[in-house]
Amino acid sequence: MNFKYGILKNILVIIFLLLIQKTFIKILSLSSLNISPDFVIIMLIYIGAREGKITGSVYGFLTGLLADFLSGTFIGLSAISYTIAAFLAGFFNTENEKFLTKYLFLVTVFACSFAGNFIYFWIYFQGTPITFPEVLVKYVLTSSAYTTIVSLVYVIFPRKRRIERSFLGEA
């Protein structure tokens, strides 16, 4: 029951974040390059880091596929990048969930979103005059940095479970 509830909760959160991502992208975009933070990848990294590589990559694949269907660009592109990002997040899955706490989560988000964005933009800009260093600096690095900055929200507003734990610990 708890497991099913967890899946449902994750799906709902992902759909909500996709909605936010698609609807508010114009407001959040930076510069003429349209660099925007990726709320969805933060959630996928979180899932990957908490539940492991397999769960992460399955969520990543399905979410990426949905995002692709909604994007109007190449179908399968977000699926690849989200799958890889969430799979890599699985490497940060530890017993004590230390990579989900405080600033280590920012490191996790940056590392995984960098890998995901790298795959995404590298394929996306194939056949265009934009050079590899340009893709790396203008798109991959900036997008990953912006996404990491947005994930600060997670650090500033700690998870309910963590608060509960601290209360129990004190008790």
Binding site: S57, V58, G60, F61, G64, L65, D68, I75, G76, L77, A79, I80, T83, I84
Partner: peptide, 8 residues
């Protein structure tokens, strides 16, 4: 999953 993605 990656093969599926590439297939898509």
């Amino acid at each position: 999953l990656l093969i599926f993605s590439l297939a898509f």
